[in-house]
Design a protein around this nucleic acid. Structure first.
Lengths: 204, 204
DNA sequence: AGATAAAAGTGAACATCGTTCAAAAAACGG
DNA sequence: CCGTTTTTTGAACGATGTTCACTTTTATCT
């Protein structure tokens, strides 16, 4: 049974990821401690480093899971027969809902930093594409001239704008209490952007 | 001379703030260590805690300084006789330039987290208003119907959208290499937003 | 000026982290 | 069942933020 070995490793890794996930969800990224997570996963302190490079590596795995879950949510939310502008609005609202429902995990995806001069592995960098890949199609439908890199760039910018509003609101960095206005504010933002793009003939 | 006492305290505090500032600017928020900053400021390790509550408190003071400097930059950048839409474009470009020039300090302003269940002091929360207070006036000029809280909320959203694009770009969280396109992408975003607001008659 | 009290500054010591690695335990092969 | 390999363990290490008994400096009074 040389197979059981890997199976146990994978099982432990999964337990660690789930433990880390619940720890981050409950206490935020800063609440994730090596000793807590190994205890909750049922292994010794050092066991973490047999299965994962690092605490940072564990966080990346959690973020990977969160991005995948967010990607699934976004994929399912847009009806097949929806108009392009409605599709984009639905995606934005789904993003708002996800961020509000899982604030700590969502926050970890965008605020985790590796030590200086280290960067995220490429397999994980690619996973961030779920944030925009659902936007590309409806955006292209609305502006058929928009293709290739320019299309992708517009989609990125559109997402980033929405993301910024969500982040500012959820971080509470402003005087106002935009938490309860977030949804409608994003709706207005996307509406204005789409109108602005139309008027500007696809030039964003 | 009961005055010399406070003067020395203030001088040390200032040296600590400057040391922390340069440390963050060079090595990021994570590069700020109590031992480094006290050595650089020329005091003992414990001296930090006589003058500032905490390392977090020191970071807040640095962020306060950064916000003030950003606020000054934004205030000076818009000509008195500029059209409202040009004023907003100038503010956005100035924001981009600031973030690109002082990425680490700018990043610290938006990504510093206090321990769980602690929140920023109110005097510091108010300082974040410099981010939007320059936008309010030109926005009102463009849409005279927009007043009060609704106006402030629109200004917040407008800023947050720009901020999101800048942050995504500078964090390099996407496949593309938007760093060199950031300026023009923000310009396009603001343009589309302004056009969209116009078309939507001030409803953002 | 000198003595005395108060304040400020110091850095060793402590608590809490992440990480390592020699040793123990378990699994495996013959 | 013994020897070998692999896995798991947790004590130990280094780095870090914070505290506090002690020293040094400063202020006040006679």
């Amino acid at each position: 049974m040389g197979n059981n070995k890997d199976a146990k490793r994978d099982a432990l890794r999964m337990r660690l990821i789930e433990a880390a996930e619940s720890e981050i969800a409950e206490h935020g990224l800063q609440g994730l401690k090596a000793r807590n997570v190994t205890t909750k996963a049922g292994c010794a302190l050092g066991g973490l480093y047999n299965v994962v490079t690092d605490l940072d590596g564990l966080i990346i795995l959690v973020n990977s899971k969160t991005l995948a879950r967010l990607g699934d949510t976004l994929k399912e939310v847009v009806p097949h027969d929806a108009a392009a502008d409605q599709a984009i609005q639905s995606l934005a609202q789904a993003y708002v809902a996800f961020a509000m429902a899982e604030t700590n995990l969502w926050h970890a995806v965008f605020n985790h930093r590796l030590p200086e001069n280290q960067e995220l592995p490429q397999w994980h960098q690619k996973e961030y594409m779920v944030l925009i890949e659902n936007i590309v199609k409806p955006l292209h439908e609305m502006f058929p001239d928009l293709v290739g890199d320019a299309l992708a760039l517009r989609a990125q910018t559109l997402f980033a704008a929405v993301h910024g509003v969500v982040q500012m609101s959820l971080n509470g960095q402003f005087a106002g209490s935009p938490r309860e206005y977030l949804s409608q504010e994003v709706k207005a933002l996307v509406g204005a952007l789409v109108r602005g793009i139309e008027k500007g003939r696809g030039a964003l």
